[in-house]
Amino acid sequence: MRAILEEPMSENKLPAELINFINEWKDKQGNLIMVLHRVQEHFGYIPREIAFEVAELLNTPVAKIYGVITFYHLFKLTKPGRNQIAVCMGTACYLKGGEDIILEIERQLGVGLNTVTPDGEFSVEAVRCIGCCGLAPVMTVNGEVFGSVKTAQLKKILEQTRGK
């Protein structure tokens, strides 16, 4: 819960399209997770003041919303880097050296997992199987899949991405 307190209030507000989306889902049972997905798709994470707005619109306690956000790995409370790198640590990728990929990326960027580089350019996370196990080890950069990755390729991949 610490992240909630520390995060500064920003200028985030729900845009009209999201409000429409929420109103559409409002009367459907079990709508909260679908709404949070949509919010995260828009902002890249779930900003605190948006969570409050969602609570109001859905008539749900904020505590319940944070209970759900913190339970599911996919929901983020802090803003990710401009370029998001995900390295697969599913079993097939692990066996084929996924961990070495992570170590090398961490070394090159100088930050650990789930942290944003100081210039805001990159964030790296480990994910569980993206279903391309035949191409292991696999990583994605902003959703684009790279298969059979070798540590020697990483420098180039990062350089190509930087500043994009």
């Binding site: 199987c129 391309c132 196990c133």
Partner: peptide
Amino acid sequence: EGDPGAYMDR
């Protein structure tokens, strides 16, 4: 399909 390293259902 939570098993990491499996993609039958997908």
